[in-house]
Simulated scan of single mutants.
Amino acid sequence: MRHGRLLIHAHAGDGHTIVAVDTHIGSGSGSGKCVHLHGENHLRQVADTFDSPAQAQTAFERLHSDAM
């Protein structure tokens, strides 16, 4: 996250902040992992991790489809 190497698939407002589903791209140990992020700027945190973009997107839509 620190180096801005995220491919954002979708984002939504959860009433208090922004949530998003992303894939880490580029080189490094986190590369290829899909994550759900919660929060903005320096308060952003990884809420969940997935092995594939399809799994991450399906879970995100189930949780946040009304706000996407």
Rank of each mutant, 00 (worst) to 15 (best):
42 H>K: 13
32 G>H: 08
32 G>S: 05
67 A>S: 15
67 A>V: 15
2 R>N: 13
44 R>M: 12
65 S>F: 01
64 H>G: 01
23 T>I: 00
56 A>T: 09
31 S>E: 12
50 F>S: 02
48 D>H: 10
20 A>E: 12
56 A>G: 08
21 V>N: 01
41 N>W: 03
65 S>P: 04
8 I>N: 08
30 G>E: 15
43 L>S: 09
3 H>K: 15
67 A>C: 10
53 P>D: 08
23 T>E: 12
48 D>E: 14
33 K>H: 10
59 A>K: 04
39 G>W: 03
37 L>V: 02
62 R>N: 12
33 K>V: 12
20 A>N: 07
40 E>L: 10
43 L>W: 02
19 V>E: 04
40 E>K: 10
49 T>N: 12
51 D>P: 11
3 H>T: 12
58 T>H: 11
23 T>Q: 11
37 L>K: 09
53 P>C: 03
36 H>M: 06
40 E>V: 14
4 G>R: 06
53 P>H: 04
8 I>W: 09
20 A>M: 14
10 A>W: 07
16 H>S: 13
67 A>N: 13
37 L>G: 00
50 F>K: 02
10 A>P: 05
50 F>L: 06
28 G>A: 03
4 G>K: 10
37 L>C: 04
46 V>N: 03
10 A>K: 07
17 T>P: 02
60 F>Q: 00
47 A>C: 06
45 Q>P: 00
59 A>E: 03
30 G>Q: 14
1 M>R: 14
48 D>L: 10
15 G>N: 04
20 A>V: 06
66 D>N: 14
6 L>N: 11
1 M>V: 08
15 G>E: 05
51 D>K: 14
61 E>T: 05
21 V>C: 04
47 A>Y: 04
55 Q>V: 07
62 R>Q: 14
42 H>R: 15
8 I>E: 07
59 A>F: 01
1 M>Q: 11
10 A>Q: 13
32 G>R: 08
57 Q>W: 13
57 Q>N: 15
17 T>E: 07
62 R>V: 07
48 D>W: 08
